[in-house]
Amino acid sequence: MEIKQLYREIVNEHNLHPNHKGTMTDPTLVLRGVNPSCGDDINLQMKIEDGVITDAMFDGSGCAISQASVDMMIDDIIGKSRDEALDLAGRFMGMIRGTGTEEDLEALDEAAALQDVAHMPARVKCAVLGWHTMEEALANL
């Protein structure tokens, strides 16, 4: 998929009308993620109860791909356990590296729409920012 098509079909909707953007009143885990070279800067907030991510939100600013990617990621991880969320992160990274399987794409649901970023080396960091931030936040848990 070319980038204009990617924006039109997937990214714009999540960028302009994100489902999970805002500030959470009672997060249990907060981590900031930054792409210093681009200026993408997000604050990922998660609520974790009994090892399950019951809610998550993000705020901050960045390019459309970084913002849409984290929004789709949050769609994926709400209701998942820590290990399930980390498993999804692994699948997403694999997809972006170009080694994702059909099973990975299925598990990632809508986030799989970013698979063509694998062919856009300049934008890989944008797509993985949210996932990296989540991995880092959960790793310390």
Partner: peptide, 22 residues
């Protein structure tokens, strides 16, 4: 309303090379 990196990526698809960033 458009991040500079998105501007540059879209222009690149039309073979226009500009710099985006800080």
């Amino acid at each position: 309303g458009v991040h500079p990196h998105d501007v540059s990526s879209v222009l690149n698809e039309d073979h226009v090379c500009v710099r985006a960033g800080h």
